[in-house]
Design a binder for these strands. Structure first.
Length: 205
DNA sequence: AAAGAGATGGTCT
DNA sequence: GACCATCTCTTTT
């Protein structure tokens, strides 16, 4: 199990080590992923292997924390190892892992995973979608795993049985040479290569 | 295969 | 009232 201290390092350090870890959720919803709270009361296990992430730092014009603390980004200024969830473009939810010292305001965005457990639930939540594009984007994977705004500030360290969301190390080491690149979808801080990805050769197909 | 546009709502000035 | 750390569908090469 990952200790909180593991997350208390800077985001660009934690990000590449988050690759090949598992993002696991045990969440109940109505199965169509619309997040309307029409809960069927049955929690389903879904998970995926993290294959792409992005680091965001406080002195970073692309970061939500660049202009100081607000209601939305408050979780990023709290303890490391919690989940920061925000609404993107009014439609999608994005999930981040808070890193660094309390008050520093940093996080790692999870951009893509490879489905593992609960593939049927994942397909149902995503609709009739090609399997290859089920979880290959930040908004897609949150929907696939049932993550929504109500999971903002959830603690990922508290890995007790039945926890809604957790990060698991199943022994699969991070890639030795992750692919670096510019972050996606931002207009400022474009030059900082803080996107990390598992090389295609290190995964199945 | 690539490019374009509309959807949609919380958050901040 | 403007701005998005996006996705999907439609239109065009």
């Amino acid at each position: 199990m990952l200790e909180r201290s593991w997350f208390e390092r800077d985001a660009p350090t934690v990000a590449p080590e988050l690759l090949n870890k598992l993002l696991v959720t045990m969440i109940s919803d109505d199965g169509d992923g619309d997040g309307d709270g029409d809960d069927d009361g049955v929690a389903t296990l879904t998970s995926g292997r993290i294959i792409e992430v992005e680091a965001y730092m406080p002195d970073d014009p692309a970061s939500h924390t660049f202009n100081g603390e607000t209601r939305r980004n408050a979780v990023m200024f709290g303890p490391a190892g919690r989940l920061y969830v925000y609404l993107s473009y009014g439609i999608h939810h994005c999930a981040n892992v808070v890193t660094g010292a309390v008050g520093s305001g940093q996080a790692v965005l999870i951009r893509a995973i490879e489905p593992l457990d609960g593939i049927d639930t994942i397909r149902a939540r995503r609709g009739s979608m090609d399997d290859r594009s089920l979880t290959d984007g930040p908004g897609k994977l949150t929907r696939a795993l049932g993550i929504g705004l109500r999971h903002d500030a959830v603690d990922l360290i508290d890995g007790r049985d039945g926890a809604e969301i957790s990060i698991v190390d199943d022994g699969c080491a991070p890639p030795e040479h992750p692919v670096l690149g510019p972050r996606v979808g931002i207009t400022k801080g474009v030059d900082t290569p803080w996107r990390f990805r598992v090389p295609a050769t290190a995964r199945g197909s």
